[in-house]
Amino acid sequence: MSVADNIIAAPAKPSSGTHGARVDLITVAGMIAPGARVLDVGCGDGELLRLLAETRGADARGIEISREGVSASMAKGLAVIQGDADTDLADYPDDAFDYVVLSQTLQAMRRPRWVIEQMLRIGRRGIVSFPNFGHWRIRAHLLVRGQMPVTESLPDSWYDTPNIHFCTIRDFVELVHELDAEMERAVALDRYGRPVRVDVPWWFWNLFGEQGVFLLRRRG
């Protein structure tokens, strides 16, 4: 089965309540059914959760490692727990959520595979967005300069980046197959976070998508 078979058009942009929100977050929000129970893993200051609560009526919860992020989320009225997803996801019961979201955090996990397994245990569906290390700029950077790329969206040097597990869209798709999860939707985002709307083979996305956003579903 080719990956392209699973890739469908990006969802329409929600019409209201998203003013000022990051475009990639709007894409993630568009994958979530109204009124769902959502856990955002590595929720930062709670911007996505706030968006989900306001535009999708979601029961939105989060885990965040920084105390400042948790306090900022709580001030938005969100229920967020300070903790380390690399270990604390084990404490959540099975099927506790409809969706578990990893928005731009997978690459910072010590155990990304374990985290994705956990997300599909805790939630029936998982949404993962991550920077695509297969993007042509990154490839070009490595090819031409022979150095780890430092770009606008990945601004840290190799020695102080929190991103310790980069992957490409192709790598991620392989992992999804290994975990025997179903890919319900896949979207590539351009450098501005907008969905790449053209209908192209996925290797094109692996080259031209700056970010991948995947909606996964546990089989069975």
């Binding site: 919860r61 105390r67 948790v70 306090s71 989320s73 709580m74 969100l78 229920a79 967020v80 727990i81 300070q82 903790g83 404490d91 959540y92 019961p93 506790a96």
Partner: peptide, 14 residues
């Protein structure tokens, strides 16, 4: 509280 699906926030202050 999580197991009971209650709304819970948690902070550990340094």
């Amino acid at each position: 509280l999580n197991a009971a699906a209650a709304s819970v926030s948690f902070v550990e202050i340094e």
